[in-house]
């Protein structure tokens, strides 16, 4: 058999091919694979030699080669290409956001339908979401909350001791957690834990035809799959925020007792004064908002996946990236707006 890198042999064939008087007789060849045929074809510079004999069986290969263009040139590079790519990307994102808004509109319609037909409300699926995305996330959130509380308090403890303001730890950590860190940490964790799995679940159901089957039996995929995820997360998320706050503050108490002599009892007394109810409510509200939006975005990317594995993985990544960017942006905007209206 011919080796592909057999350059010397190739040059010899090439030299022979350049002489039009040479006759090519391949009738004695027993076996010729496509690699061999392409090798010869290239030696002939892409056309059959004039004097050419070959068995019928092998002729098919060459007839085939004659009709296709073996060299497919890559698209030409244009200096505007990066700009075009950027434009296409922006249009893509805009279309995706439009798609999410449409999905949100559909959910409103589904909700209204459920109000008129209470039996259609997917209670079972909602409770499954609360359990899977909420209850089962508790161990991880406990761990992350505790660690965050410990690290944060440990970092500011030094400063506070220096200025003789040890008891300020209650206000600083309490406010920080209830308003910002709790919703933020819980949001990031839920995006990674549940957002990704929602997208993958729905996209996989597309691949297996389950979404089609739902429709064929008269069941709306948005009502049955998306609504429970959005409502379930909007229900579970604020509670997860509260739990994260709680764990974070426990972590803070552990450190402040050891390092600052601010004990559990002192926290209990000072906390209600240092941290107003409004902060608790802001964090809770953020939880509802983040939960609903994470569910919506994750479901959108699941539904918009094409039915192949590549699209599933790509949309799962997109879902996580979009959700993370969204949680960060919203958190920032809300922080600025709320301190602007005097809630800060």
């Amino acid at each position: 058999m011919l080796g592909r890198t057999d350059r010397k042999f190739f040059r010899r064939l090439r030299a022979m091919a350049e002489n039009p008087n040479n006759t090519w007789d391949l009738t004695a060849v027993d076996a010729l694979d496509s690699a061999g045929a392409v090798f010869l074809w290239r030696a002939w510079d892409g056309s059959k030699p004039k004097a050419f004999q070959v068995s019928d069986e092998h002729r098919v290969l060459f007839d085939h080669l004659e009709h296709i263009d073996l060299v497919v040139s890559p698209p030409e590079y244009h200096w505007l290409a990066p700009l075009q790519a950027l434009g296409a990307w922006l249009v893509d994102i805009a279309l995706q956001i439009a798609g999410m808004l449409l999905l949100a509109g559909q959910l409103v319609i589904d909700t209204l339908y459920c109000l008129r037909h209470p039996r259609a409300l997917p209670l079972h699926e909602i409770s499954a979401t609360v359990y899977r995305a909420g209850v089962q996330a508790l161990p991880l959130l406990t761990f992350v909350g505790l660690i965050t509380g410990v690290v944060l308090t440990d970092q500011i403890a030094g400063e506070l001791v220096q200025f003789g303001q040890s008891t300020a730890v209650v206000g600083a950590v309490g406010l920080g957690f209830l308003r910002e860190l709790g919703p933020f940490v819980a949001g990031i964790i839920i995006v990674g834990r549940s957002g990704s799995s929602f997208t993958a679940e729905i996209a996989a159901m597309r691949m297996t035809g389950e979404i089609d089957a739902l429709k064929a039996f008269g069941c709306s995929p948005t009502l049955r799959l998306v609504l429970p995820k959005v409502l379930g997360l909007a229900l579970a998320m604020p509670l997860l925020v509260v739990w994260t706050n709680f764990c974070g503050i426990i972590g803070a108490i552990l450190v402040s007792t050891a390092k600052l002599n601010v004990t559990y009892g002192m926290w209990l007394v000072m906390f209600p004064d240092a941290v107003p109810w409004s902060d608790f409510i802001i964090g809770f509200g953020k939880g509802i908002l983040f939960g609903g939006l994470i569910g919506l975005v994750a479901s959108y990317y699941g539904l918009s996946a094409a039915s192949n594995t590549q699209s599933l993985t790509m949309n799962t990544t997109r879902s996580v990236v979009f959700n993370l960017a969204m949680v960060l942006t919203l958190d920032g905007i809300l922080g600025v707006v709320m301190s602007g209206v005097g809630l800060g």
Partner: peptide, 20 residues
């Protein structure tokens, strides 16, 4: 109408499409 139609037909998909 849409709901009535869905109760009148039974569909078997090529790849079964059972709810996993």
């Amino acid at each position: 109408v849409a709901r009535m139609l869905r109760a009148r037909w039974g569909v078997l998909f090529q790849h079964s499409a059972l709810f996993s």
